[in-house]
Write a protein that binds this DNA or RNA. Structure first.
Length: 778
DNA sequence: TAACAGGCAGTTTTT
DNA sequence: CTGCCTGTTA
């Protein structure tokens, strides 16, 4: 009697499902049925007797985790999932482990009720630190400082270690900031995204008991998209598996049941610290591990696959693997050159509309369902390299009445009014959270100004109390004006009223999260503030803010309905249990902190999806349009310095192509308006690597709005030279602001600069990429 | 203290 | 073009 779990699998797929004991590496090419294998494997494990709670599957996005959970549930029934099967993201898992064990582990930095700081919070905090260290924000852009710190953390380097390695002035300064930043996080009882991983890795490494508990529970470990793991994730995986991770010297418990799935050709997170070597070295890390390659593609037509395969062969640092399909036929891939981004957008929108109307799509490979009626909107997508490209497309789709969504899961929570409301909630959940406190202490204005805050901060630091508690005694603090004092007293009273002075008991304290959110929105004065704004300005966007606040309350209500307290990790000691409302609030805030852009793509919305190439990974669509195939955009200008960067860009392009099942349109605009400036572009070198069989057309004549001469062929590999080559020493240039000048020195490299002596304003050093210079002596 | 104007700098991808 | 930061004024 054939097992229905195995019946429709290919031989390699079947092998991967059946290999349950001992390490397993599955190299799964794009579209090779990876998710199917993973879910069947989990189902098979359960069928053959593994308790669901002993299985841990890790993904990178909530969406991937959700899908996996759903598919397992449909194979086994909801019951199995309910019996403790853990399918979650790395970051969620770490957050949960830390909530449960952080205090017991004596990590020092955080307690179980910590707040997760997102990029905006991190920026606010690092700015404070920079100010305190008297470093100017222009010389030390918070963004770059944070990315240096993040890189260190991803490499599991803490502040003391970083300081120890810092040799030059730059690193030494970063080390000082890193140290203070970490101290500030500790004071705020907060962890940034990277900390979630770093602290978990440290905890599992240092605490054999906790590690043992985890290993004891999760006997089967499965990790998806393994090619995108960074060092911290790699170490966590190794420690959970019970293997000897990263040379830390632990004895493997036995041969660990760790199964990793990935595709080196789809590694696109190198910039975030991911290292392909984690997957490439898996075999040597776990000697005797089984390796299974899934090469047959079940997703795309032959022409699409051929383009993808030809392109990716241009990568030199690569283990070749055949990508093939048994199906023949299919429409050719279309490459279209347009005059500019507006024509490009129009072309994409026309293309989508034509497919929707039913021209052509069903005539693909035999065996495909003939969709004479056209492609549904939800089966189409538009991909772009950078978010900024979405605007023109969006305008065009809206104008032509095509329904669409932009996959920007985080956008809602980034809005000013939402961040304000959430900041209040976060202060309730974690009174030490200074970033949130400072954000709303005077929002809406209640008379607390900079001077008042300054005095309060000094006092709090001196007396070693939390700022919120310092506010309670504002009357006794010297240097605070009466007006400020009044505002602070009101502020504290308000928070106390919401929390029952921290007890979450008493009259007027409900157990409902939605009620709490509603009270906060109203009683904080946010609602009134935005109402007033909407009335005076009468603008649409101000009215929208009020709607958004209501939507936030609804989202809290929704979360509350779905929340399962029993599924939460209890504290290590039951007597530490927080009031139910507080636990609910923290879980809610955590879920918000960990949403990703990709999470918001709901396949059932019946609309075209627009998203970045990064967000597209793991998805598939019947028809895909990829725009902006231009030098500087894809490959991105920031990523063509090294071969490694360039190859990652090529993989990104590969990922985009391989999302398409039946139709693929790739566009490149000859001119593009950048920051209000029309620029001529060079077609992406990748177009020249698509191989034969693509259908190329140049439609730029039809859309030409300006009389700029067209030169040259569609594309040829662009000369790989930086902008500095265009501005030799001595050349004359014009700058929109500084006027005429002469180049006196040039430095090539990442950010090529030139020293230019201007006739009127003297010598200036400019970054060529942004300087908007024009040669005037040619 | 709050609101506003004007100058300036920065441009990727995200858990 | 945008958003951020600074400085000015009521």
């Amino acid at each position: 009697m054939p097992d229905p779990l195995l019946a429709d699998l290919t031989e390699p797929q079947r092998q991967a499902v059946l290999h349950t004991e001992g390490p397993l590496l599955v190299l799964a090419a794009a579209g090779s049925g990876k998710t199917r294998v993973i879910t069947r494997r989990i189902a098979h494990l359960v069928r053959t007797g593994a308790p669901p709670w002993s299985i841990l599957a890790l993904t990178f996005t909530n969406k991937a985790a959700g899908e996996m959970r759903e598919r397992v549930a449909s194979l086994l029934g909801e019951g199995a999932v309910a019996r403790g099967l853990t399918v979650t993201t790395f970051h969620s898992l770490c957050a949960r482990l830390l909530r449960r064990y952080a205090e017991a582990a004596g990590l020092g930095q955080i307690r179980g009720d910590f707040t997760i700081y997102d990029t905006a919070d991190q920026t606010a905090l690092v700015k404070k630190v920079l100010a305190a260290l008297e470093l100017s924000g222009t010389n030390w852009p918070p963004r770059s400082v944070l990315s240096a710190i993040s890189a260190a953390k991803n490499d599991l380097m803490d502040a003391p270690a970083f300081a120890a390695h810092a040799g030059d002035f730059y690193s030494k300064t970063i080390a000082r900031v890193y140290t203070q930043y970490q101290k500030a996080l500790t004071a705020a009882n907060a962890a940034d995204f990277d900390d979630l991983l770093v602290l978990t890795a440290r905890m599992l490494r240092e605490r054999g008991d906790i590690r043992g508990e985890c290993q004891g529970r999760w006997r089967y470990l499965l990790i998806d998209e393994y090619q995108d793991t960074n060092r911290a994730q790699f170490v966590i995986a190794g420690l959970l598996a019970g293997g000897a991770a990263g040379g830390t010297g632990f004895q493997p418990a036995s041969t660990p049941n760790i199964c990793v799935v990935g595709d080196p050709d789809q590694a696109i997170y190198g910039w975030r610290g991911a290292s392909i070597s984690n997957i490439l070295d898996f075999e040597s890390q776990y000697p005797g591990c089984r390796v299974i390659k899934l090469g047959e593609n079940f997703r795309s037509t032959a022409p699409i696959l051929s383009v993808a395969d030809t392109l990716i062969r241009s990568n030199k640092i690569r283990k070749h693997k055949d990508l093939f399909t048994k199906r023949a036929g299919g429409q050719p891939v279309e490459v279209v050159l347009t005059a500019d981004e507006r024509q490009e957008a129009r072309l994409v929108s026309d293309w989508l509309r034509a497919l929707h109307a039913g021209s052509g799509l069903g005539k693909g490979a035999p065996g495909q369902e003939a969709t004479g009626s056209g492609t549904a909107w939800k089966d189409m997508a538009v991909f772009y390299r950078t978010n900024s490209l979405s605007r023109v497309i969006e305008d065009e789709l809206r104008a032509s009445g095509i329904p669409y969504v932009i996959a920007r899961g985080t956008a809602f929570y980034q809005r000013e009014e939402i961040r304000n409301a959430l900041a209040y909630l976060r202060v309730i959940a974690n009174p030490a959270d200074e970033v949130s406190l400072l954000r709303v202490a005077n929002t809406p204005p209640r008379g607390i100004g900079d001077a008042g805050i300054q005095a309060l901060e000094v006092h709090a630091a001196r007396t070693n109390v939390r700022m919120l508690d310092a506010m309670r005694g504002a009357g006794d603090i010297p240097g605070i004006s009466g007006r400020s004092r009044g505002g602070m007293t009101k502020f504290v009273a308000m928070i106390d009223a919401w929390t029952g002075a921290g007890t979450f008991m008493g009259a007027g304290i409900t157990g409902s999260l939605a009620d709490l959110a509603a009270r906060v929105v109203k009683e904080s004065g946010l609602e009134g503030m935005y109402q007033a704004q909407a009335k005076t300005s009468g603008s649409e966007s101000d009215a929208e803010r009020l709607e958004n606040l209501n939507e936030l309350i609804s989202s809290a209500a929704e979360f509350e309905l779905e929340y399962d307290a029993a599924a939460e990790p209890g504290p290590a000691h039951p007597e530490d249990a927080a009031p139910p409302l507080l636990s609910l609030l923290r879980a809610y805030l955590e879920s918000i902190s960990l949403v990703a852009d990709a999470d918001m793509t709901d396949p059932d919305q019946g609309v075209v999806t627009m998203m970045t190439l990064h967000a597209a990974k793991g998805l598939e669509f019947a028809a895909v349009a990829m725009v902006g195939l231009e030098e500087g955009l894809l490959p991105h200008s920031r990523a063509r310095e090294s071969d490694a960067d360039l190859e990652e860009e090529r993989r990104l392009c590969f990922v985009g192509i391989t999302r398409a099942m039946r139709r693929l349109l790739v566009t490149s605009a000859k001119h593009r308006t950048n920051r209000g400036l029309l620029e001529r572009t060079i077609p992406s070198r990748f177009l020249g690597e698509f191989g034969p069989g693509v259908l190329v057309s140049d439609r730029s004549e039809e859309g030409a709005r300006h009389a700029l001469a067209d030169d040259g062929p569609g594309w040829s590999p662009s000369p790989a030279r930086g902008p500095e080559a265009q501005y030799p020493i001595g050349s004359l240039v014009r700058h929109p602001q500084f006027g005429l000048g002469q180049v006196v020195a040039v430095t090539a490299g990442a950010a090529a600069r030139a020293d230019i002596r201007f006739r009127d304003v003297g010598v200036k050093t400019l970054i060529l990429e942004y300087a908007r210079l024009k040669r005037v002596d040619l």
